[in-house]
């Protein structure tokens, strides 16, 4: 039986993405209807890729009804959506012509990179950072702090997205885009999620840890899967930089979602998407100031 996820949405971004998340993962066929989507941001795109990957890992057949909007289709093509989405996903129309369109006519910042190995992280971060400094003339000091955010979040993919026993090859995706008033960084992987990663540490096995608490404890107390002093400070550091820049941090892992802004955290229980998604929004103003 085909189950349509027919909650039509007009924008695919943080929180509106939640309306796409299927509740019943026991079905063998799912249809995702994006026809009325007129806007997609990096978080929306990365989360859709991770959702598609998670569903394909569960051997669920997925058909995506692509947006009617040509602009959105062009955007998805430019952001390598069709390359990154698993090949077993079916689309309702032929999109092969999109590859002949001009890839980035506005020359605005729209970058996507695949993250598989820890040794590639610094090169990817430097690539993003150099674009921000040279092409966009952003303040070097602020970009350096933003690079710290990228390093800490990107390296979590090879370090934490698989357990020590499973044969899942760590693979994630990161996308960055600039808007009129902010920069958005999104990344995700279809790995084991934060709670399962933390439960590799015997210290937490007796705790009543759900997905939301797992994320909140990482951010508040520096929980880590490694029972070694000094570990677990990376995401705390990310939160501290994001807060200083008056930005927003969203971490979604399995059924947990934590949204942090202005030093406050809001926790939500959401539908299960495998893996972990992170969205970071920083006001553009901080990149344009002389010093931070």
């Amino acid at each position: 039986m085909k189950v349509p996820i027919n909650k039509t949405i007009e924008e695919l971004k943080a929180f509106t993405f939640e309306r796409l998340v299927p509740i019943n993962l026991r079905e063998k066929n799912l249809e995702i209807d994006l026809r009325s989507v007129g806007f997609v941001d990096p978080y929306g795109m990365v989360s859709l890729i991770i959702l598609a990957k998670s569903l394909s890992l569960k051997s669920i057949e997925v058909k995506i009804f692509l947006p009617d909007s040509q602009d959105v289709l062009n955007y998805l093509e430019r952001m390598d959506f069709f390359k990154e989405v698993p090949s077993c996903i079916n689309f309702d129309k032929d999109i092969s012509y999109l590859q002949y369109n001009i890839r980035n006519p506005s020359e605005s910042l729209k970058e996507v990179k695949k993250i598989c190995r820890e040794e590639d992280v610094v090169d990817i971060v430097d690539t993003f950072a150099n674009i921000l400094v040279t092409r966009h003339r952003f303040n070097r000091q602020t970009v350096n702090k933003f690079s710290e955010i990228m390093i800490e979040t990107f390296q979590n993919i090879p370090q934490h997205s698989s357990s020590s026993t499973d044969d899942y090859e760590p693979e994630g995706i990161a996308a960055i885009q600039d808007y009129k008033d902010h920069i958005y960084l999104a990344l995700g992987d279809a790995g084991i999620g934060i709670k399962t990663s933390l439960l590799q540490n015997p210290r937490y096995r007796r705790m009543a840890l759900d997905d939301t608490r797992a994320i909140a404890n990482v951010l508040k107390y520096g929980f880590s899967r490694y029972d070694v002093p000094g570990r677990g400070g990376g995401l705390q550091r990310v939160l501290s930089i994001v807060t200083r820049f008056n930005g927003q941090l969203l971490i979604r892992s399995m059924q947990g979602l934590v949204f942090a802004r202005k030093g406050k955290m809001k926790c939500f229980t959401v539908g299960n998407v495998g893996g972990t998604l992170i969205g970071i929004r920083i006001p553009k103003q901080v990149f344009l100031q002389e010093s931070t």
């Binding site: 350096n144 710290e148 390093i151 800490e152 390296q155 000094g230 400070g233 550091r237």
Partner: peptide
């Protein structure tokens, strides 16, 4: 230009410890 928390902890803080 940049030293991340992770690098600082692994390369320097552990040695100082």
């Amino acid at each position: 230009d940049i030293i991340s928390y992770s690098f600082a902890d692994e390369a320097i803080a552990i040695i100082i410890q």
